Computed example of a mutant assay.
Amino acid sequence: MTATMNFAPSIPVSAAADMDYCREAIRTGSRSFHMASKLLPAKVRDPALALYAFCRIADDAVDEGDDKAHAVLSLRDRLDMVYQGSPRNACADRAFARIIEEFDMPRALPEALLEGLAWDAVGRRYDTFSGIMDYSARVAAAVGAMMCVLMRVRDADALARACDLGLAMQLSNIARDVGEDARAGRIYLPLDWLRDEGIDLEAFLADPKPTPEVCGLVKRLLDEATRLYGRSAAGVSLLPLACRPGIHAARLIYCGIGGAVARNGHDSVSVRAHTGAGQKIGWLGRALLDTGLHLMRPLPATLHAAPAPEVAFLVAAAAQPRGSFRRSSAVLSVLAQLEAKDRALTTARLQGLAFPRG
């Protein structure tokens, strides 16, 4: 059953003001999606901006904050409040709560995002490409599945292709950010790929350099993204006609990130790839043209390809309306690690206050 939101009467709440905040958050924080969203119909665009604002703010708090454990635990509490119908008194939370209620969003989808951000907070590294896909499923493919729900599409094939697009987008982001991540002590390349190329992980993190071996791994990651972008294109035909240009534009814009990395010789260590406003506008126009052309083409066989194993749980969850929910043991385990870390940091701070160093 859908919870009814319970806002305290003493707090003035304006849905329009909340949406204005979400639009601005995405305009400045996620320019690629903000540009692509211009081609979505308003009835989908505003909920999508609210969704992206909530997810982006949560991601930034974990990625950029000094206390990652606390940021994830705060997100856990915010999700609990949203699904109880009593969101925190903040624009993004109220806007997200409204779309949860209106679209009957399965909780397993934002819960997957919570798990992925928790993995970031504990500094998890991934031994295999499948592990990278597991991570990408949570922090990106889950958002693709939620976008389908906002378009009121719960067809399994459409969901699988939306998850393909989310995976591809995340792999593009990882490929673009290899140097930036390394300088922050993070690595999202599969560790077995590094070992196969004779790359010493700790040496690379200490002094990242765009060696031929590292650039080769970036290319390999982008090759996987290209494959997934190709599969995702088939799913656009299952979306409402008015939504197709916007989703196709998002696909082209994010795929363009990989193109920019390739033009830099797959060096994403010493230079960070960028795409300009003019390029994005070009991709918007191409999306409009391609959408019309696709209407005249037969549906490709890849439309019915099985979902990647790492996203099958998202497809199953999104295909059903919201029902009963129990936080998984895997999520509870990583949250328990973060609670212990948060308690230790709090204790250390209190001890520092009680016994200041002279």
Rank of each mutant, 00 (worst) to 15 (best):
P321F: 04
I100N: 13
S328Y: 09
A319Y: 07
V334G: 04
G179H: 07
A175R: 01
E115M: 06
L288W: 08
W193R: 07
W283S: 10
Y83V: 03
L73S: 11
R107M: 15
L165P: 00
P106E: 04
A348M: 11
V143S: 06
E197F: 02
G216K: 04
R357N: 02
A3R: 13
A97H: 06
Y254M: 00
P321A: 03
D18W: 03
G265S: 09
V214M: 13
A316L: 10
P210F: 07
G352C: 00
A260R: 03
C91P: 15
A301D: 14
R263M: 14
A242W: 11
G258Y: 10
N264Y: 05
A168K: 03
L238D: 10
W283F: 13
G323R: 11
A90L: 04
P208C: 07
D80A: 06
N264I: 03
T28G: 12
R286C: 12
L345G: 10
M35F: 10
E202I: 07
T347Y: 14
V44C: 09
P245H: 08
P298K: 07
K280W: 12
A142R: 01
G198Q: 00
S232F: 00
S333H: 13
S268D: 07
P110R: 00
R195W: 10
R124S: 15
D223V: 12
L314D: 05
H70I: 13
R124T: 14
R322C: 14
L113V: 08
A354H: 06
I199R: 04
V236I: 14
A15L: 14
R138V: 01
S270T: 10
W119S: 02
P12L: 01
H294K: 14
E180R: 05
D67P: 10
G230T: 11
I247N: 08
P321I: 02
E339H: 03
S268K: 01
M296G: 06
E64G: 09
R98G: 03
S30W: 05
A348E: 14
V122K: 07
P208N: 09
L113W: 02
D104N: 08
D59H: 02
L114V: 01
Q320L: 15
P212D: 13
E310K: 08
D46E: 15
C55Y: 02
V271C: 15
Q279E: 12
D290I: 15
A90F: 01
Y126T: 02
L114I: 01
D342T: 00
M35I: 11
R94Y: 13
R94C: 13
A277I: 15
V72H: 02
A118E: 02
A340K: 12
P110F: 00
A90D: 10
M147H: 05
M147I: 11
A277G: 10
D177Q: 04
I174H: 11
F7N: 03
M146F: 06
L353Y: 14
L73H: 05
L238F: 06
A156E: 05
R125P: 13
A61N: 09
P210Q: 07
D18V: 01
N173H: 12
L117V: 00
I11D: 15
P309C: 05
L150C: 05
V82Q: 01
G235V: 01
R78Q: 15
R251A: 14
R27Q: 08
R343V: 10
D60C: 12
S37H: 04
A158T: 02
V72F: 03
G29I: 07
E180H: 11
A206P: 08
A305C: 12
H266R: 03
R186C: 10
V143G: 05
R125F: 14
V236F: 10
D93T: 05
P240I: 10
A61C: 09
